[in-house]
């Protein structure tokens, strides 16, 4: 059973069809790279999977939940790092991570370890307002990783990170994958992301190429295997 499975998913932003029929399968433990030009629908696809956007037509099942019926109950098991940090300007790094954990019903004692892991220990008491762009990105990742989600959705996570940060992120994603967590990331850092990902899916004008998994004897391809994208 794939962690994410969408068929002909159409998603409309206002009056604009941002996704015009997306077919995507992602297996547990996979790292899938979404590539494609600006405005292709990568962010919309990630937000759809997170349950933030309604489906107009088609189907989507994420972590066993049919999003046509329920866009909420799978959210506690996933984390989305988007363009915004989702944090509060006047809370410190530590308070933001703790509130993220608290509101998701997770143990707030995980906060310090996650902050440490993302290299923000020295900034722990500094408010979000005073962080640099790269530090904010690290904070958003700390909030996401602290919850140890089964599914990580990352929208251009490399943007703003320094060399150390990028290496750290790759390390974290590889570790998450080996623990059986699933990662879907949209990125323009193609070289770096391709080295990391098991599979690349090209998003183009609201459609996906190579989104559907090849099945071997009815089973989804085992995690960790590099799969040649099927381009039809």
């Amino acid at each position: 059973m794939p962690v994410v499975s969408t068929r002909s998913a159409v998603c409309v932003l206002g009056r604009f069809p941002a996704l015009a029929g997306a077919d995507l399968d992602v297996a547990a433990g996979e790292i899938v790279l979404l590539s494609g030009p600006n405005g292709a629908g990568k962010t919309t696809l990630l937000r759809l999977i997170a349950g933030l956007l309604p489906l107009r037509s088609g189907s989507a099942t994420v972590l066993g939940v049919d999003l046509r019926r329920d866009r909420r109950s799978h959210r506690r098991h996933l984390a989305l790092v988007g363009h915004d940090t989702g944090c509060y300007d006047d809370l410190t790094v530590r308070e933001n991570v703790r509130f993220g954990l608290r509101s998701a019903g997770a143990d707030v004692r995980q906060a310090d370890a996650a902050i440490e892991r993302l290299g923000l220990a020295a900034q722990s008491g500094i408010t979000h307002r005073r962080l640099s762009a790269g530090q904010r990105r690290r904070l958003a990742l700390a909030v996401a990783f602290a919850r140890a989600p089964r599914l990580l959705l990352l929208d251009e996570p490399h943007a703003g990170l320094d060399a150390d940060g990028r290496a750290l992120l790759d390390e974290l994603l590889a570790a998450a994958s080996s623990e059986g967590r699933t990662v879907i990331l949209a990125s323009h850092e193609l070289e770096r992301a391709r080295a990391l990902a098991h599979r690349e899916v090209v998003v183009d004008a609201g459609l996906l190429h190579g989104g559907v998994l090849e099945t071997i004897d009815g089973d989804v391809v085992a995690q960790g295997t590099k799969v040649e994208a099927a381009v039809s």
Binding site: A20, R194, A197, H198, R199, E200, V202, D204, A205, G206, L207, H209, G210, K226, E228, A229, V231
Partner: peptide, 11 residues
């Protein structure tokens, strides 16, 4: 999207 030439994608 259908009309656009697609490059082969492989890793």
């Amino acid at each position: 999207a259908g009309a656009r030439p697609r490059e082969a994608v492989s890793i």
